Amino acid sequence: MTSVLVLNGPNLNLLGRRQPEVYGATTLAEIEAMCRDHVADWGWSCDCIQSNHEGALIDAIHATIGHHDGLVINAGAYTHTSIALMDAIASVEVPTVEVHLSDIHAREPFRHVSYIEKVALAQICGKGPKGYVEALDLLKTHLETEGM
């Protein structure tokens, strides 16, 4: 069975209450359920992990080897700072799509830099929770086209 990991970084556990004017009112639990339901229609499985700790995110990325066929990652603020996350994604060679709820390119200049996009198939930002679904759709197309 095809399996994907949806990995969320720091402060995303506070979605729904954290700056709803920027990130919306949808909770992380709702996004995770939406992702699981979406891939279930294809007969896929979806694991979801959130951590505020960079090392835990790296461990989760490493654990994709042999367990997951694709990765959707919202690394939160680590997007703009973590070469370690970039290196982990490059090392595991699992197709990865980066997603952000807000449009990082329309925000503060320091948010315009993404280390993750350097090793991802694509970056989806500014589409709210629907960006996760778009990321999963992109992974599906990639895996069907390129093979698993």
Rank of each mutant, 00 (worst) to 15 (best):
P10W: 05
P20R: 10
L28M: 09
G24Q: 06
H38K: 05
D37M: 11
N11H: 08
N8V: 02
N8D: 07
E30D: 15
W42A: 06
V6C: 11
I31K: 02
V22K: 13
R18E: 06
L15P: 00
M34L: 15
V4R: 00
P10K: 08
W44E: 14
T27N: 01
G16F: 06
I49G: 01
R18F: 07
V4M: 00
T2F: 12
N8K: 03
R17Y: 00
V6D: 02
A29L: 09
E30K: 05
H53D: 08
R18H: 02
A25S: 15
R36H: 13
S45T: 14
T27H: 02
H38N: 06
W42G: 04
S51L: 09
V22H: 13
I49K: 11
G43N: 13
A25P: 01
R36I: 10
E54I: 02
T2E: 05
A29W: 05
R18W: 06
I49Q: 09
G24S: 09
T27S: 12
S3A: 15
Q50E: 04
C46A: 10
E30G: 09
N8M: 10
R18G: 05
R36P: 08
C48D: 08
S51G: 15
D37T: 12
I31A: 00
E21S: 14
N11M: 03
V39M: 06
R18D: 00
L14D: 12
W44Q: 06
T2M: 06
A33G: 09
P20F: 01
D37G: 09
R36G: 11
R36T: 08
V6G: 00
L28H: 02
S45F: 07
E32Q: 15
V4Q: 03
E30M: 12
V4K: 00
C35P: 02
I31N: 01
D47I: 06
V6S: 08
Y23N: 03
G24Y: 03
T26S: 08
G16Y: 01
S45A: 13
A33D: 12
D37K: 13
P10F: 02
L12S: 04
L12M: 08
Q50D: 03
E30R: 05
L5Q: 05
R36D: 04
W42P: 00
A29V: 05
G9T: 01
V22W: 09
A33T: 15
L5E: 04
P20H: 08
W44H: 12
C48W: 08
D41T: 15
D41C: 11
M1C: 12
D37Q: 15
G43M: 10
D37P: 06
H53Q: 15
V4I: 14
G16S: 08
I49Y: 10
Q19G: 07
L15A: 05
N52E: 14
E32T: 03
Q50M: 03
R17L: 04
L5M: 07
S45E: 12
A33W: 01
S3P: 04
N11D: 11
A40S: 14
R17I: 12
C35F: 03
D37S: 15
N13G: 04
Y23K: 09
W42F: 14
E54F: 01
W44R: 10
N52F: 07
E54K: 07
P20L: 07
N13D: 14
S51W: 09
G9K: 02
D37H: 14
M1K: 11
T26A: 14
L15I: 13
N11C: 11
V4A: 00
